Computed example of a mutant assay.
Amino acid sequence: MSARRSAAAAVLALFLLGVPAEFAVADGPGGGVNCPPTKLDCPITAEDDKPPTDGKPGKPGGGGDGGGGGKATCAIDGKEVPCSTDMGRFNPADACYWQVLDPQPGPDDPVWGYATGVPDGWKPGDPGKLYNVSCPGIGRELAGGTTFSAAGPAGGGVDVQALAQRAVENLRLEGADIGVAPKPSGVGVVGMPVWIWNKPGPTRTGPATASATAGSVTVTATAKVRNVTYTMGDGETVVCTGPGTPYKAEYGKRRSPDCGHRYSTPSSSVDGGRYKVTATTTWDVEWAGAGQTGTITTTRDAGTSVEIREVQVLN
């Protein structure tokens, strides 16, 4: 074991035994740094230290994909069926598929004489269109046919899944607003606890709700965070199912109860001398509208960085 590793082990042993010990970051890039035993982040005091160029937390909402495809759910007598087929779009009001006639028949077309639902006195130019209605299922075929509707079927021909994607965009979901101890402006030490948390807010930790409307159809989406995966820059990942616990000075060198990490090597071993920390928030978004429901999964990224050094015992 190297002298530095032995010194670090000695400091850890003193900490675990509850014996006060002063320690300092070992010489190297940035010079010596005093760090009292009650703090997790050590302010840089050496004159030859250079301020970090990438140490500020990443802005929430950076990166991330646009979301996985949401699978709509439609059903006839409790059995799931496609929400859209070559017969048209599913109408939950009558459990039939509606497809608008395109082009619409001319005013003298005989179809107006046998289409169902055409109101007395209706004339071309008045609101309403003709639809081909198909009702799959034994004994239900007679429920279909050419049908007039002034407002259209439930959904009005709107692509409900596309409207759900709009509702997700209206949520304005963000990546984590990362809190970390040691702070990016300070220095941590090998083997000591690192605390991580996501600062609360509806668009960062959820739940968040938003809607999108097209015609008479409104889709409402509700988003909840499934987890946040932190890539710590040393080849390790930490998955946190909650926002994490913000660090307070009175916690001393205790470990985070729910979202933390320990580095086993100094960050001088990586390019730039700092560990880059990336937080990927996975959101589950449930949506509903026009008798349809579905779930969309989307992610958002954010980042920060930390400097970790080895320590040496001071006599």
Results as ranks from 00 to 15, higher is better:
Phe90Gln: 11
Phe90Tyr: 15
Phe90Lys: 08
Phe90Glu: 10
Asn91Tyr: 05
Ala93Lys: 12
Ala93Gly: 08
Asp94Ala: 01
Ala95Asp: 13
Cys96Lys: 04
Gln99Pro: 02
Val100Ser: 09
Leu101Tyr: 13
Asp102His: 07
Gln104Asp: 10
Gly106Ile: 02
Pro107Gly: 10
Asp108Pro: 10
Asp109Val: 03
Pro110Leu: 08
Pro110Trp: 06
Val111Lys: 14
Trp112Gly: 12
Tyr114Glu: 10
Tyr114Asp: 13
Thr116Arg: 15
Thr116Phe: 04
Gly117Arg: 13
Pro119Asn: 05
Pro119Gln: 06
Gly121Thr: 02
Lys123Ile: 07
Pro124Trp: 02
Asp126Ala: 15
Pro127Glu: 12
Leu130Met: 04
Leu130Val: 03
Tyr131Lys: 02
Asn132His: 08
Asn132Met: 09
Val133Phe: 04
Ser134Leu: 00
Gly137Phe: 01
Ile138Cys: 05
Gly139Trp: 07
Arg140Ala: 10
Leu142Lys: 15
Gly144Gln: 05
Gly145Pro: 06
Phe148Thr: 14
Phe148Ser: 12
Ala150Tyr: 01
Ala150Pro: 00
Ala151His: 09
Ala151Asn: 14
Gly152Glu: 07
Gly155Tyr: 05
Gly156Glu: 14
Gly156Lys: 06
Gly156Pro: 02
Gly157Lys: 06
Val158Ile: 13
Val158Lys: 11
Val158Leu: 10
Asp159Phe: 09
Ala162Tyr: 09
Ala162Asp: 14
Leu163Gln: 01
Leu163Cys: 02
Ala164Glu: 01
Gln165Trp: 04
Gln165Leu: 07
Arg166Glu: 14
Val168Ala: 12
Asn170Arg: 07
Leu171Tyr: 09
Arg172Glu: 13
Arg172Asp: 13
Leu173Lys: 13
Glu174Ser: 14
Gly175Ser: 08
Gly175Tyr: 04
Ala176Asp: 15
